[in-house]
Measured scan of single mutants.
Amino acid sequence: DEEIEKWIETLLKRNISLRVNGKDLEIGSEEFKEWVEKFIKEV
């Protein structure tokens, strides 16, 4: 979905790490990609 890709790009540009389930996810890491894929499937 384009919306999500733009959102991810924005996050990448800002180099933010997300806190997911109490863990810091490094943007661009494998864990982050897995989380994004799960997130996309749920939406």
Rank of each mutant, 00 (worst) to 15 (best):
D1E: 08
D1I: 15
D1Y: 14
D1A: 13
E2L: 13
E2V: 12
E2Q: 13
E3K: 10
E3T: 11
I4K: 04
I4G: 02
I4N: 02
I4D: 03
E5M: 14
E5V: 13
K6T: 07
K6L: 06
K6Y: 09
W7G: 00
W7L: 07
W7Y: 03
W7Q: 00
W7P: 00
I8G: 00
I8D: 00
I8Y: 05
I8M: 05
I8N: 00
I8K: 01
E9H: 01
E9G: 01
E9V: 01
T10A: 15
T10G: 12
T10V: 08
T10R: 13
L11A: 04
L11Q: 02
L11M: 06
L11G: 00
L11P: 00
L11E: 03
L11W: 05
L12S: 03
L12V: 13
L12T: 04
L12M: 08
L12G: 05
K13H: 08
K13C: 13
K13V: 12
K13L: 10
R14W: 09
R14P: 11
R14G: 15
R14C: 13
R14E: 15
R14A: 15
N15G: 15
N15I: 15
N15F: 14
I16S: 06
I16R: 02
I16Q: 05
S17T: 10
S17L: 12
L18A: 05
L18F: 03
L18H: 02
L18T: 01
L18E: 01
R19F: 00
R19L: 08
V20W: 02
V20C: 15
N21T: 02
N21P: 03
N21K: 05
N21V: 06
N21W: 01
N21R: 05
G22I: 12
G22K: 01
G22V: 04
G22Q: 04
G22L: 09
K23F: 10
K23I: 12
K23V: 10
K23D: 05
D24T: 10
L25G: 04
L25I: 10
E26V: 14
E26Y: 08
E26W: 09
E26C: 14
E26N: 08
I27D: 02
I27A: 07
I27R: 02
I27P: 13
I27C: 04
I27H: 05
G28W: 11
G28N: 06
G28R: 05
G28Q: 03
S29V: 06
S29E: 02
S29F: 11
S29M: 09
S29R: 03
S29A: 05
E30Q: 14
E31F: 06
E31W: 07
E31I: 04
E31S: 08
F32L: 07
F32T: 01
F32D: 01
K33N: 11
K33V: 06
K33I: 11
K33A: 07
K33S: 08
E34Q: 10
E34T: 10
E34G: 07
E34M: 10
W35S: 01
W35P: 00
V36I: 14
V36F: 13
V36M: 10
E37F: 04
E37P: 01
E37M: 06
E37L: 07
E37H: 06
E37R: 10
K38G: 10
K38L: 07
K38D: 09
F39K: 04
F39Y: 08
F39D: 00
F39M: 11
I40M: 07
I40Q: 03
I40P: 00
I40A: 05
I40T: 04
I40R: 04
K41D: 04
E42G: 09
E42W: 14
E42H: 11
E42D: 07
V43T: 08
